[in-house]
Simulated assay, not measured.
Amino acid sequence: MAKSTSGNFFEDFRLGQEIAHAVPRTITTGDVALYSALYGMRFAPQSSDAFAQSLGLPRAPIDNLLLFHVIFGKTVPDVSLNAVANLGYAECRFLAPAWPGDSFTAKSEVIGLRENASGKTGIVYVRSTGINQDGVKVLEFVRWVMVNKRDPVNKAAETHVPQTSLSVQGADLVVPPTLDASAYDPILGGSPYFFDDYQVGEKIDHIDGMTIEEAEHQIATRLYQNTAKGHFDAVQQKASRFGRRIVYGGHIMSLARSLSFNGLANGVFVAAVNGGRHVNPAAAGDTVYCWSEVLEKHLFDGRRDIGALRIRTVATKDISCSEFPAPGSESEPVVLLDLDYWLLMPRREVQA
């Protein structure tokens, strides 16, 4: 009897099914260094223990998106090994700080199923949770993914499309409990602009571009222990509708986050992801650019040191955002990512 597995197909999922994902993962300072090397991350609290300690944190925390990718990677063998595409995210919240040396496990619950009209694929909706070594929830998110069917003749026994929130409410954002941004140094942070300097409706061209290299996107995906076949197997992908290896969508998220430093350098923590769509696939050789728009601002009760900006970031390929004819248009084949998320940013009024 074969001891290997070909992963779950659409027919294998059931509403309410709970899945405990294999392989606990400790994120080390080595992982953090590799993540920085892959994306060029420069946000000050994640780059320097001393800077983090000036904000009341014990040390430099794990970048929020690195944590997201690791938890996401845990879910892939059970949820999306046979995926055609990862379609979207919702209700993602970072619930507790994560530090190098912490170990994480993940679990998921199937909250929705819908067979596609072709009969060849279906949409699986899951709510996934990341948990640290102390049993504390550090992250939760909903995602939906298009998964191949084992046999198109098999008809779906259940259909349910869950209703997800359009955005995480500002009052539900979690601020690290010891964080005190009243002494935040904008010179070391890399930008003179604080929360108060941004206006709803303002758009920011992040200007710089970064070209995706084949080796780098595969190293990144392996770093997260993401085993999705489409990112690695060139022989299999030649026969797919894409014709070549596609880049893990989270790689585009981290590239865009890194590029956003030029314009949002003091947006030091991602507190939540309201929604996100991988509009078109990316491949090695594509050059990623991005721009952002301020959608909303939130002030926390009883806090004068920090606020939250709701940001929409759109990533494009091979065309700078200053030249892009219709930013954010889904009909544009050059759009890779449309991401709606909350950033925590120090306020100006309490700075020396």
Score class of each variant (00 low, 15 high):
G73C: 15
S6D: 13
T105A: 11
A308G: 05
P152Q: 09
R310A: 01
Q218D: 09
R42W: 07
N262Y: 00
P58E: 12
L66N: 06
K120V: 04
I111H: 07
S108Q: 00
N226K: 02
D340Q: 02
I187R: 03
S103D: 02
Q17D: 12
Q163V: 08
F72V: 05
T287K: 08
A308S: 07
S191C: 10
F51D: 02
D49T: 07
Y184I: 07
D305N: 07
M210I: 05
E323R: 08
P177W: 01
Q46T: 12
L179I: 11
G101K: 08
L139H: 04
A50S: 15
V335H: 01
I319A: 06
A33S: 14
T313Y: 04
D197R: 11
A283P: 01
D340V: 01
K317D: 04
S182K: 14
S128K: 02
A117Y: 06
D134I: 07
F13P: 00
I19P: 03
R127D: 04
S191W: 11
Y89N: 08
A22P: 04
E296M: 00
Y35S: 09
T178I: 14
G135K: 14
R42Q: 14
E91C: 12
T313D: 01
S103H: 01
L343Y: 00
R241T: 05
S118I: 07
D12N: 15
D196Q: 15
I19C: 05
S320A: 15
A83K: 08
V270S: 03
I204T: 12
A239Y: 09
V334G: 00
E18F: 00
V110K: 03
S292D: 11
F13I: 02
T105L: 05
L179T: 07
I111Y: 08
A315R: 01
A156L: 06
V247K: 03
N8L: 14
L295W: 01
L179E: 09
L113N: 08
Q225C: 14
F269S: 00
L344P: 04
Q199P: 02
L336R: 06
V32N: 10
D318C: 10
P77N: 10
L38I: 13
V235G: 07
N116Q: 13
A171F: 01
G73S: 14
